[in-house]
């Protein structure tokens, strides 16, 4: 089933004007607002015609589309713009795929957690929180997963600056 056909089914329950299809080399992407994400995901999973029973992948992305501000020490800081989360869904039953994308403001990246829909999202969301600082509302245990708890900053943001020392050990080479 293509993304356009899926959008036809979604029309029954959602006002589809808020969705947008982005054409792309590796398959179309459905851009959705974050406030309907949770309802949408439950619908995508539970509707018989769609039956997206598995979340293959969840990635956080720093789009870095804000304004770059030069700082005194030569590094830069990004102000404004967006972070994004991607959801790659797949249905074992119908063997079709769907990619969702949610844009989040960089200053306050909050998105509802889909952990209750697909349990596999648990660690993926914690990872995105750890590396990008995206807050997943409703996640039962949102804390750092890869980095230590007392780490500063979110490393995969494009304007990340490495800390000089961690617990007395020098970090840069």
């Amino acid at each position: 089933m293509t993304t356009t056909e899926i959008l036809e089914i979604l029309k029954e329950k959602f006002s589809v004007e808020q969705f947008e299809i982005q054409s792309n080399i590796g398959g179309e992407i459905l851009i959705v607002p974050s406030n309907v994400l949770l309802d949408l995901c439950f619908f995508l999973r539970d509707d018989e015609r769609l039956a997206f029973d598995s979340l293959m992948n969840l990635s956080g992305v720093d789009l870095a589309d804000g304004e770059k501000k030069k700082l005194e020490d030569g590094s830069f800081e990004i102000v404004g713009g967006h972070l994004a989360t991607y959801y790659h869904l797949h249905s074992f039953k119908h063997n079709h795929k769907l990619t969702l994308k949610v844009l989040l403001p960089r200053e306050n990246p909050v998105v509802p957690s889909v952990e209750r829909v697909w349990r596999s999202a648990d660690w993926h969301e914690r990872e995105a929180y750890d590396l990008f600082g995206i807050v997943f509302e409703g996640h039962h245990n949102l804390k750092r997963i890869l980095l230590p708890d007392d780490w500063d900053g979110y490393p995969l943001r494009k304007d990340y600056k490495v800390q000089e020392f961690y617990q007395g050990m020098k970090v840069p080479y």
Binding site: L146, L147, P155, Y160, V162, M169, K170, V171, P172, Y173
Partner: peptide
Amino acid sequence: CGGPYWNHGYHVLKGIDRV
């Protein structure tokens, strides 16, 4: 010495002889 991760490895200790 950190190997291939010496430059961008923000979470890699660059050589165990530091510890």
